[in-house]
Computed example of a mutant assay.
Amino acid sequence: MTPCKIRILVVDDEPQIVRALRINLNVRGYEVATAASGGEALRVAANFHPEIVLLDLGLPDIDGIDVIAGIRGWTDIPIVVLSARTDSADTVEALDAGADDFVTKPFGMDELLARLRAALRRGPQAAGEVVVVTDSFTVDLAAKTVTRRGESVHLTRTEWGVLELLARNRGKLVSQREILQAVWGPRHERETHYLRIYLGQLRQKLEDDPSHPRHLLTETGMGYRLV
């Protein structure tokens, strides 16, 4: 149960989905506003001031990517995309536009609610978090150090660059392109094999069972997330 009335804007043009979401979110203590088009979504967002947005990409007037851009023009609240599009290029485009997560239709309500809770935990209020703690290791973003079971872990500059980006976006799916641009530069955004190599090295150093990682996760064809 959500302890307070968190405002959520649901944007979808399918009435049955909106109804199901409204019922489930209301029961869990969310205050829900809805919009059935991109233009309406931007107007409602400006007046309702949601703390999180659940956004379908396939809207009847303007594309959901443009809605993300419009919202990002004035706020950094979490945006979770909900879409029937299964092409990984659509996921990457949404993430690059500023979405925080991507859930594919059809979806399970429990999974969706978990994604919403995770997005809220890492929302604007978490921006000042400088120490990221997992069950296996701790990342101190201010000191630029990593410890595992109380022992310092040596990382190369590139390994740190990858881990730092994931830690600053904990729980969020970070696209392959975003990592490559941030760590290696724009000329290397197609060199996805770099990521396989360096994530493998980080797992060897940080995960209890590198072959079955619990924290440094791969979203096949899309990107990576630290949980």
Rank of each mutant, 00 (worst) to 15 (best):
M1I: 09
C4Y: 14
K5E: 14
I6W: 05
R7N: 15
L9G: 04
L9I: 10
V10L: 10
V10R: 00
V11A: 11
E14I: 14
P15W: 04
I17G: 02
I17N: 08
A20W: 03
A20F: 05
L21T: 01
L21W: 02
L21Y: 03
R22P: 01
N24C: 07
N24S: 14
N26Q: 12
V27C: 04
V27T: 11
V32S: 07
A33K: 07
T34L: 04
T34C: 13
T34H: 05
A35M: 05
G38N: 07
G39L: 14
G39M: 13
A41Y: 01
A45H: 08
F48K: 03
H49L: 14
H49E: 14
L54M: 09
L54Q: 01
L57H: 00
G58E: 10
G58A: 12
G58W: 00
P60N: 09
D61R: 06
I62N: 03
G64M: 02
G64Y: 00
G70F: 08
I71Y: 02
R72T: 09
R72G: 09
G73K: 11
I77Q: 01
I79M: 05
V81C: 05
L82A: 02
L82E: 01
S83H: 01
A84W: 11
T86Y: 06
T86S: 15
D87A: 15
S88D: 07
A89I: 10
A89Y: 04
D90T: 04
T91L: 04
A94R: 00
A97Y: 05
D100P: 00
D100I: 00
D101E: 15
D101M: 03
F102C: 05
F102M: 13
V103L: 13
F107D: 06
L112P: 06
L112H: 12
R115Q: 11
R115T: 14
R117N: 08
A118H: 11
L120N: 01
R121P: 04
R122A: 09
R122D: 04
P124F: 15
Q125C: 08
E129F: 02
V130R: 14
V130K: 14
V133W: 04
T134V: 12
T134D: 11
T134H: 13
F137W: 06
F137C: 03
V139Q: 05
D140C: 13
D140G: 10
T145D: 09
V146E: 12
R148V: 06
R149Y: 07
E151V: 04
S152Q: 15
V153Q: 14
L155P: 01
L155W: 01
T156W: 09
W160K: 06
G161V: 07
G161E: 13
E164R: 15
E164T: 05
E164K: 11
L166M: 15
A167D: 15
R168P: 06
R168G: 13
R168S: 12
R170Y: 08
G171C: 06
K172G: 02
E178W: 00
E178Q: 13
Q181R: 12
W184D: 04
G185I: 07
G185P: 08
P186Q: 08
E189A: 10
E191K: 09
T192D: 10
L195T: 02
L199P: 00
L199W: 00
G200E: 10
L202N: 02
K205T: 05
E207D: 12
E207T: 05
D209A: 06
P210R: 09
P213D: 09
P213A: 10
R214M: 09
H215M: 03
E219P: 01
G221N: 11
Y224P: 03
